[in-house]
């Protein structure tokens, strides 16, 4: 089957035999976007979190056929070094990553959370950010999530460009 979708703003089509193939492998091995990580393959760790139509999904357990006509965003499309997403800017300010492997998944989950809840409480963060970080950078992540909400709340014309 052929699946048409948008990824990081660009039109994309993929010819695939098995429509149930997890999106993660299409993204990583066919489209060569390696920022989205494999952790468990069972939607249990969140390392593969991406956005489909703005919602956070765990791409290792999300079939390619179900994204037909949808918009996909991966960490590569979240922001750039020149124009970082507020979540990425906050992550840089708080120097969150250690090994860094799980961080794209956390940043994608956080970006989706801030869309739903622009100013999350600690409880909101506990309930919604349920990925696994083995370096256990949770303490800085929590601070960075609050900071990202703060950056988000600044009108864009007042933002200091990095």
């Amino acid at each position: 089957m052929k699946v048409f979708f948008k990824i990081n703003g660009l039109d994309q089509s993929v010819e695939i035999q098995d429509g149930n193939t997890p999106l993660l492998w299409i993204i990583r091995d066919m489209l060569n976007l390696k920022g989205t990580k494999f952790g468990c393959g069972k939607a249990a760790c969140g390392a593969c979190t991406i956005h489909v139509d703005g919602e956070a999904v765990r791409s290792c357990s999300y079939s390619i056929k179900s994204i037909d006509g949808k918009e996909v965003t991966t960490i590569e499309g979240l922001g750039t070094e020149e124009n970082p997403h507020p979540v990425q800017q906050a992550w840089i300010e708080h120097v969150v990553p250690q090994c860094g492997y799980c961080q794209p998944g956390f940043m994608m989950a956080t970006a989706a959370l801030l869309k739903k809840i622009p100013n999350p409480t600690d409880e909101d963060i506990n309930d919604n950010i349920v990925n696994v970080c083995r370096c256990a950078t949770y303490y800085r992540m929590r601070k960075a999530i609050h900071r990202a909400a703060e950056i988000n709340s600044i009108p864009s014309n007042l933002k200091v460009q990095k």
Binding site: K34, G35, L78, T80, E81, Q88, P97, Q103, M107
Partner: peptide, 12 residues
């Protein structure tokens, strides 16, 4: 390695 790890560089 901060930028590589924040912007998803293929380093692993």
């Amino acid at each position: 390695d901060l930028n590589d790890k924040v912007f998803g560089a293929p380093i692993f």
